[in-house]
Nucleic acid binder design. Structure first.
Lengths: 123, 123
DNA sequence: AGGCGATATGTAATGAATCCCATATCGAAC
DNA sequence: GTTCGATATGGGATTCATTACATATCGCCT
């Protein structure tokens, strides 16, 4: 063993939650959630990817993949126009985000409960 | 959009849960859990990594890292001997695995509840 | 004493995910 | 009808996790 960096149980629980296709491929996770929210707020995929400091290329690919897996559009895409183009969340996307929020809240509560028990057992 | 591969909501929720250090590094997740259980069952890290079809190198590194982060040993390691060596779970590791089981059960229940609501919202 | 097989650990090769660059297309506004 | 900036997409470069390989050490057993 290496130097015991700490004798304290300075550990905690983390989790990730995502919507998955039957194939096992992830559809909507934390990343996509943030991306969609950013699109909603800033009005374009470009602005969203800039804000999130990820590449436009990846953001675009993620949205596209999610839409293909879901079988419906998450954004209404517009090229050209005054500002060169824009992206707007579809109604389904908005519903999805709402559901995702509710879901996360539930899981947060559950994990909080579970955590106290966990630490109890672990000491 | 691409051909709508499915008009059905054939999606489901998945989650990952793990014990993390303050630094953010993962300590015990699904992989380590399985690895420790395999060590418990088969008596050596070698056998465990073979069964799990992962490299011995990675398995060994994972255990080592987890032990360093936790500050205590998860396995009693023995080199040499009749079978060349062996690894046995420490008492703390056993307790940890028990707690992890309980935790997962709770989370599974929670996610099951959350899922029905989720599908309800999504339709 | 020597052999065997697992622990222990460094380093090079591989492969997948992501980023970076480049280019095409669109359409409202001027 | 020209300009502008975002959508759209391919392809090469890079980063990062894992595997593969290589080598040393240990200690019971014969």
């Amino acid at each position: 063993m290496k130097p015991p960096r700490s004798s304290r149980n300075d550990v905690f629980l983390k989790y990730k939650l995502w919507l998955s296709a039957l194939s096992g491929e992830g559809i909507i996770g934390e990343g996509q959630y943030k991306l969609l929210r950013a699109i909603e707020e800033h009005g374009s995929l470009k602005a969203a990817s800039d804000i999130l400091e990820t590449s436009y290329r990846k953001a675009w690919g993620d949205i596209k993949k999610a839409e293909e897996l879901l079988g419906y559009d998450l954004t209404e895409k517009h090229r050209g126009g005054k500002d060169g183009g824009k992206s707007i969340l579809s109604e389904k996307a908005k519903t999805l985000l709402e559901a995702y929020d509710a879901l996360h809240k539930k899981m947060d509560d559950a994990i909080e409960d579970a955590y106290s028990d966990f630490k109890e057992t672990i000491k």
